[in-house]
Design a protein around this nucleic acid. Structure first.
Length: 182
DNA sequence: CGCTAGATGAGA
DNA sequence: CTCATCTAGCGA
């Protein structure tokens, strides 16, 4: 499987589809990794909550980066959130990673998070970035092409039930709790 | 310029 | 429920 195939599979579809399909995938950085269990889709078109709606910089980012690039930004003045850029014929946008089920490097996560309970390590968009060590300097990078990053599809897709609900922090689109297992 | 909402998390 | 902490966008 080539990087370009993965890019197409993961990030060159409609943002809503990408967000749903990203569930169950593994996301890792360095020695830490986890299974994606919650995502949100943001669409360039018709979505006032998408950064491209208000921010020129987000529009420039979208124009100048390829699908799969990391869009990382600081929220509430102190929390880094990570999105993956999605570009396709059926729409551009972003997939926000809202939660992971930590699977590797728990010890390092605990130190970074100053928190021992596994369920509190990556159970939020800003918790997981802290646990994986993601911050502003990852903004614009291409995780599919970088060794320190890991993005892999689920071993087995059967048994993954995806629940769809409204977004958090503002109304609309998709959100979702776990129910993985292969 | 000054003002403030915002894709949040921790702690009382 | 409050507070921490800061940047882009908006109105004056």
């Amino acid at each position: 499987m080539t990087v370009e195939n993965l890019r197409r599979d993961f990030f060159e579809r409609n943002p809503v589809i990408c967000a749903r399909e990203f569930i169950g995938c593994t996301l890792g950085l360095g020695r830490t990794r986890g299974i994606v269990v919650e995502t949100e889709a943001y669409s360039e078109i018709g979505d006032p909550a998408c950064h491209t709606f208000k921010r020129p910089a987000a529009r420039v980012f979208l124009a100048q980066h390829q699908a799969g690039s990391a869009y990382v930004y600081l929220n509430y003045g102190m929390h880094w959130l990570i999105n993956f850029l999605v570009k396709s014929d059926s729409g551009n946008g972003f997939v926000l990673v809202r939660a992971l089920d930590p699977s590797e490097g728990l010890d390092l996560m605990r130190r970074r998070r100053k928190q021992s309970k596994p369920e509190l390590l990556c159970s939020g968009p800003a918790k997981l970035t802290q646990a994986l060590g993601i911050n502003g300097h990852h903004h614009g990078c291409d995780p599919l092409n970088q060794n320190e990053w890991l993005i892999t599809a689920p071993m087995c897709k059967t048994g993954i039930e995806v629940e769809v609900s409204v977004r958090i922090g503002i109304s609309r689109a998709i959100d979702y709790p776990p129910r993985d297992s292969c």
